[in-house]
């Protein structure tokens, strides 16, 4: 009976993995199809949809914009979030636990609600520049990922090392930079990776903030899927999937996958 149960569970696990990969494999298959419709099985192999990516200007612009926004917002969150996390861990500020919850709470709110709030606030404050509005909103989106991983890393860090560096003559900022930062680098890498992915993949917040000329990649992709779905969309999606896998492998080499997932 126990053996039967464990076989059953393994069978379910295998089916679940197949099920999860199905849409991903379909996108990869279609991107190499020689046909412009998404017939299954595909009639033949071709790289024409990858070749046509070079001419897809609006798509390439969207990739570039999303990369900039994701990189900048992650960097800003890393700096602001880490400084805040240090103060929280060291109990320098009153109500440290409440502050930590506050800084991580955008993750718990529905994305659309956040997006609407940003849209209204930008209007009321007279902020018209799409790029800076997107950037500010994406710092809020990425902040929880940084807070969670950096707080977890700091809880394992021995702050006596910072005091030791200061006794040896370093100033407080220099002590943080030379002692603390290298020690919690794994937290930065995993938190930064997830923050970057969260920003790069964000749809529900960005949809309220983009304009006709400034569109992030998920918005542009979904537009294209709704308007004129062709395998060019599959080709760029396939490149995105491969890029994500590459980033995961690099980060796994740096810090280990298990550690990344245990945020």
């Amino acid at each position: 009976m126990a053996l039967f149960g464990s076989l059953f569970c393994r069978l379910v696990l295998g089916l679940v993995i197949a099920f999860l990969f199905l849409p991903i494999l379909i996108v990869l298959t279609v991107s190499f199809s020689s046909s412009a419709v998404f017939a299954f099985p595909p009639p033949g192999f071709s790289l024409r949809w990858y070749a046509s990516l070079g001419k897809a200007d609006s798509m390439l612009q969207a990739v570039w914009l999303s990369t900039q926004i994701a990189a900048l917002s992650t960097a800003i969150s890393l700096v602001l979030g880490t400084l805040c996390a240090i103060a929280i861990t060291r109990g320098m500020i009153p109500g440290a636990k409440a502050v930590a919850t506050f800084m991580a709470s955008p993750l718990m709110l529905p994305g659309l609600v956040l997006g609407i709030a940003f849209l209204q606030a930008a209007r009321d404050f007279g902020l018209r520049d799409t790029y800076s509005t997107l950037l500010i909103a994406h710092v809020v989106i990425t902040m929880p990922f940084i807070m969670r991983t950096v707080l977890a890393s700091l809880s394992l860090f021995d702050f006596a090392m910072v005091d030791a560096a200061r006794m040896l003559g370093r100033s407080y900022p220099a002590a943080l930079w030379t002692v603390l930062v290298p020690n919690i680098l794994p937290g930065f890498v995993s938190g930064g990776l997830f923050a970057f992915i969260a920003s790069f993949d964000n749809y529900p917040v960005s949809i309220f903030l983009v304009d006709v000329r400034t569109k992030t990649l998920p918005i542009q992709l979904l537009n294209q899927v709704e308007m004129s779905p062709d395998p060019t969309v599959a080709a760029i999606s396939a490149l995105l999937i491969l890029g994500t896998i590459a980033a995961l492998i690099v980060c796994d080499r740096l810090v280990g996958l298990k550690r990344m997932a245990s945020i």
């Binding site: 999860l20 990969f21 199905l22 849409p23 991903i24 494999l25 379909i26 996108v27 279609v30 998404f38 299954f40 992915i197 790069f200 993949d201 749809y203 998920p218 992709l221 979904l222 899927v225 779905p229 969309v233 599959a234 999606s237 995105l240 999937i241 994500t244 896998i245 995961l248």
Partner: peptide, 16 residues
Amino acid sequence: LPLTVSIVVKTFGLTI
């Protein structure tokens, strides 16, 4: 791994 793949991409795959 599927968690890190864009939701738009996965949903696109599902519609196909």
